[in-house]
């Protein structure tokens, strides 16, 4: 469908080429199959839950799924941008391990300031500032000190996680503010406000990444740095920018989690690996099998649907992580086995 091999010359004249076309066609088809397969699995799971539980399809429950996915969704979108700009090789390319800890600290900053009597505006700015500052440290460590992202963000994760413990003394800091109340409440149509935040954040990011020159250049920087450099792009700025953005996502997720949990709680780090998996899994939902914002959103919702459905059916939600693990291995095996052998 996508590939028309008889583009340049009649097929007969090409007969003597050792044709690489066959592999790219079958690869393209496999890619479509993979993406179609992923969507099919999503739809099947959705339909199964709809039949198995009468509550599943109610607007209230669907809104709940969105709300429950909001925090990990925002984080995964932030991570997706880092992966786009840093490239798919997880060790030497783009990864931000400090995201979950960032969320924890930002939430703690927000909660602590609210408890100390600061108004929402100050607390929000402080939380977002915390996230941005963490992003800036990552950006410097990666672009200036040239520490590989995996290690740089690992160290930053430790520092940030520690700062959260220092700030909260490993306790829950309750926070009830007008902003949090409206965030944890319902928006229009009785759908939770958090759901709107997730969709809004995803929409804005998707527009920037998928519809502006900036987004296009991010992809070029991550996928083929030499080509990006040859096009006159300053690689380091894009990479630094991606870490700033993921830092900001951490700050936003912090405020969301403070709303969802009515304050800051410990154990934010638990969210790290699920977020990484969500972002990586998102690639199957994109046409070109690259990380995309919409793909990540779908993947976050897919995980949300799994958790929610298992809860409704009184099944152990512990299966969710196993299913995520299996899916990621299946997806990566499929793409690895389909990749043409290095010649």
């Amino acid at each position: 469908m996508l590939v028309d091999t008889a583009l340049l010359v009649p097929a007969s004249a090409r007969a003597d080429t050792p044709s690489p076309q066959k592999t790219t066609v079958s690869q393209g088809l496999a890619g479509i199959a993979l993406r179609g397969g992923a969507l099919a699995v999503f739809v099947t799971v959705f339909v199964l839950f709809a039949f198995a539980s009468p509550i599943f399809l109610t607007p209230f429950n669907l809104g709940n799924i969105l709300a429950q996915s909001a925090i990990s969704g925002v984080l995964a979108i932030g991570l997706t941008v880092v992966i786009i700009a840093g490239g798919g090789n997880v060790v030497s390319g783009g990864i931000d391990l400090s995201l979950a800890a960032n969320m924890g600290l930002s939430a703690a900053v927000y909660a602590a300031l609210s408890q100390a009597g600061q108004v929402d505006g100050v607390a929000v700015l402080a939380a977002l500032g915390t996230g941005l500052a963490i992003g800036a440290v990552n950006a410097l460590a990666v672009t200036w000190a040239r520490i590989v992202p995996l290690l740089a963000t690992l160290a930053v994760m430790n520092v940030v996680g520690g700062l959260e413990l220092v700030l909260t003394q490993n306790t829950v800091i309750p926070a009830i503010t007008p902003l949090l109340e409206s965030l944890s409440g319902s928006g229009p149509f009785g759908i939770p406000a958090l759901a709107y935040v997730l969709l809004g954040f995803a929409l804005i990011t998707a527009v920037v990444v998928q519809a502006t020159p900036l987004g296009l250049r991010l992809y070029a920087v991550g996928e083929f740095p030499e080509a990006a450099r040859a096009s006159g792009l300053a690689l380091k700025r894009f990479i630094a920018g991606s870490f700033l953005f993921s830092g900001l996502s951490g700050g936003i997720a912090g405020i969301l989690s403070a709303a969802y949990l009515s304050g800051s709680t410990t154990g934010a780090g638990e969210l790290l690996l699920p977020v990484v998996v969500t972002a990586l899994l998102g690639q199957v939902f994109s046409r070109r099998l690259v990380p995309t914002i919409t793909g990540t959103l779908l993947s976050a919702l897919f995980v949300g649907v799994l958790i929610n459905g298992f809860q409704l059916l009184n099944l152990s939600s512990t299966l969710v992580s196993g299913i995520q693990g299996l899916l990621i291995l299946l997806v990566v095996s499929a793409t690895t086995l389909l990749r043409p052998k290095e010649g």
Binding site: N89, V90, V91, L273, V276, V277, L280, S316, T318, L319, V320, S321, G322, I323, Q324, G325, L326, I328, L329, V332, S333, T336, L337
Partner: peptide
Amino acid sequence: LIAGIGISPFLATLGTLFIGRSVQQLLTNG
């Protein structure tokens, strides 16, 4: 996963980690 199929070690062992979690929870009643 790594030597047989050729998956990158990070992704392969991440998958193992997640599957291992569920397996352990299944073995221990959650």
